[in-house]
């Protein structure tokens, strides 16, 4: 129910709407809840509405966290 997917904004349209790209599929959604979204931003889409933005730098940092596991040692070791 809460599932939502990241999509790239490719065109801003009238009435708070936008065209987004979901892995090649294009779809019109509403940006009414994320009015600051711009073209090329990734928004998280749920039931036809963007709920939030993806922060590309934080996304990169999370991936780096997965990779850098060896750096983080628990205090017990």
């Amino acid at each position: 129910m809460c599932l939502a997917i990241p999509a790239r904004v490719i065109e801003l349209r009238a009435g708070d709407n936008a065209l987004v790209d979901l892995g090649g599929i294009r779809k019109e959604i509403s940006l009414a809840l994320v009015p600051q979204a711009q073209v090329d931003d990734y928004v998280i889409v749920h039931v036809g509405y963007a709920l939030g933005l993806i922060d590309p730098e934080e996304a990169q940092r999370t991936l780096a966290m997965f990779e850098e596991l060896d750096r983080l040692q628990p205090e017990a070791l």
Partner: peptide
């Protein structure tokens, strides 16, 4: 748990902030 901590940590920082979506 091992460190005896009980904190809120955020693994999903790429989409979640401290205060959420204020417009919503």
């Amino acid at each position: 748990v091992n460190g005896g901590r009980a904190e809120v940590e955020n693994e999903f920082v790429r989409a979640v902030g401290r205060n959420g979506n204020s417009a919503a």
